[in-house]
């Protein structure tokens, strides 16, 4: 655990990164953009023997890569899936991933996967349970895990610990690192009625390895973490606070719905520079509201290959 803590505290600040998405493969290979690093969705590549993996291998040779997972289900009561962990570990070796992250969540039980990041009751029992599982995973992976705060849409009656304290205890119990998703703090705070500033102030700043930024959709009574637009001012303010408290970490923009051109994604994360030391808003960006009952948190674009768009050669009758 001590080693994990030291490992986490010695991880480098990689700069400003972009999430690797299939829509941008060709652009990246052709233009080799000046991006500090890429984050990959682990599950998109761990079984891949096709073009996604082929592209990743080329990118990993030229850019630092970080792995971000959505299916470890660290909070679940199902047994840990060691086949999954074995593939995760191998992918980390192959890509020389700087670290491996996943979420404080469960995705299903009884071998079902909802493919959502479901919330965990935050209490002493779940803390002991998840700490034990993180330790098992870390022993298997032979490196500390980095845990992200998910966006949440409900609070359990059984929750007795604030999320920022829960994350603090997890880092103390396991030596794991934290991926602070600033947008998720904002979204969860709105939905569950807590103070996002209190959250940022009370996490263990020395354990934050990375930050996430993203856009969301405000539906009036609740906010959905849609990753489908620019970051709003209130989230940039939280980022500014988190940057000051942590002393600066690797930061990444997640853009998964209505994915624009690569340059647009890259420019959005580069805006982080103006919010690191000061708060300068060139134009006001407040919450966006979209009347759409099909809004999805954690959108699936980044988890399935749009294969029908991947044909290069199709021929007619011969």
């Amino acid at each position: 655990m001590k080693n994990n803590k030291e490992h986490i505290q010695n991880l480098p600040n990689l700069g400003l990164g972009v999430g690797l998405r299939g829509e941008h493969f060709n652009h990246i290979l052709e233009h080799r953009p000046k991006v500090d690093w890429f984050e990959i969705i682990s599950e998109n590549f761990m079984d891949s023997g096709g073009r996604p993996r082929y592209v990743l291998d080329q990118i990993a040779e030229q850019y630092p890569v970080v792995m971000h997972g959505v299916s470890m289900s660290i909070g679940s009561t199902d047994p840990l899936n060691f086949d999954y962990l074995k593939k995760l570990k191998q992918l980390a070796i192959d890509t020389k991933a700087k670290w491996i992250s996943d979420h404080l969540c469960w995705t299903g039980i009884n071998h079902i996967n909802s493919h959502d990041l479901l919330p965990v009751p935050l209490n002493e029992e779940s803390l002991a349970h998840i700490s034990k599982r993180i330790n098992t995973v870390q022993d298997f992976l032979e490196q500390p895990l980095v845990i992200e705060n998910p966006s949440t849409y409900l609070t359990f009656q059984d929750s007795t610990i604030a999320e920022w304290d829960f994350l603090t205890y997890l880092t103390e119990e396991t030596g794991c690192g934290l991926l602070l998703d600033v947008n998720n703090v904002y979204v969860s705070a709105f939905n569950n009625e807590f103070d996002p500033v209190e959250y940022i102030e009370n996490i263990p700043h020395d354990r934050v390895v990375q930050m996430h930024l993203a856009g969301h959709q405000n539906q009036g009574d609740y906010i959905i973490d849609t990753h489908d637009g620019p970051v709003i001012d209130e989230v940039w303010k939280l980022f500014h606070l988190a940057w000051k408290r942590t002393g600066g970490t690797s930061a990444l923009l997640e853009w998964d719905g209505n994915i624009p051109e690569f340059e647009v994604c890259h420019e959005e994360i580069l805006k982080a520079k103006q919010f690191m030391d000061t708060l300068v808003f060139e134009e006001v960006k407040n919450d966006r509201k979209q009347e759409n009952s099909r809004l999805v948190s954690n959108p699936i674009d980044f988890m399935v290959n749009p294969v029908s768009k991947e044909f290069e050669i199709t021929y007619g009758d011969r």
């Binding site: 493919h115 959502d116 849409y153 609070t155 009656q157 939905n191 569950n192 009952s293 699936i300």
Partner: peptide, 28 residues
Amino acid sequence: VVKPSSKLSAQQHLSIYRRSYFSRLREC
């Protein structure tokens, strides 16, 4: 099991996950 908030009932909170589950997998 689920706490209501000042803006949403417990059912409304849970419904967000339910809608997302079906929307996400239908899209997939």
